[in-house]
Design a protein around this nucleic acid. Structure first.
Lengths: 128, 128
DNA sequence: TATTAGTTCTACACAACGTAGAAATCTCTC
DNA sequence: GAGAGATTTCTACGTTGTGTAGAACTAATA
């Protein structure tokens, strides 16, 4: 239940970036623009997708519980259920999972964290 | 490059559990036994797989860089490249990834950690 | 060198994902 | 209220990853 496809991720990134709920059309446009200017070969190149494609993806994301839609208004409006940070943190917990060696995993995890980030973590732990 | 299939995971679990390198036949036997006694519906039920099936899976795991094989000996012997803890920690880093909001993610992550685990983390951080 | 254990090749079914046309539905305007 | 256009749902196809294993090939041994 973890990983997303490339297009699914691109859509989620847009939903996470914008604060407002977006329509399929808006998203299609944004997808077309994204990384179109700079020739950067990053992720989903700015293809011109059909709206139905975007809608299909949105439905799948809804089924997965990542996206929520307002069915009331006519152009349905979509938004992410939780913030990217929340979602990612959840994923991390999922990966950490119910391993029989959670502590060992955490040890390795902490071990390969930058010094500044370790500092951040220390501060965060003080608050709990 | 992250998630494993059910059978792939079952094989990795066996490789991670045993300290010695194992042959495909051994693994097939272990897979047959695993969760066969208790009627537990956990993961891959103890089916009797063909050895070729196990070999295919092992090849794929090798291609993914998770498994290493000694080609010298005739029944090739397989072993995990890194420990389960290492692998899981790596996965966590992968999930955390190069998000533009690493700190926010870490904050959420820490926020939803049990008290005892938070304590563990504090200790781990002191050593770095 | 024939037999046999072990490995590689090839293949098929099934699910997830990218992609989109066709068909159904809604809304607005005349 | 009927037609036109926008929007959504249904259906579908190609690709890739995974579970599964037979067929063909290779190596070791009697």
């Amino acid at each position: 239940m973890a990983s997303l496809g490339e297009l699914e991720r691109a859509v989620m990134d847009l939903l996470w970036a914008g604060q407002e709920a977006a329509t399929a059309n808006t998203l299609r446009d944004l997808l077309a623009q994204s990384t179109k200017a700079a020739g950067g070969s990053a992720g989903h190149e700015g293809k011109d997708l059909a709206v139905t494609t975007v809608l299909t993806v949105l439905s799948r994301l809804e089924r997965k519980g990542l996206v929520e839609r307002e069915r009331g208004t006519r152009p349905h409006r979509y938004q992410a259920v939780s913030s990217r940070a929340d979602h990612t943190a959840e994923l991390m917990h999922e990966v950490l999972g119910s391993a029989p060696d959670r502590e060992a995993v955490l040890a390795r995890f902490i071990g390969s964290v930058s010094a500044t980030e370790a500092e951040t973590l220390r501060k965060l732990l003080d608050h709990s």
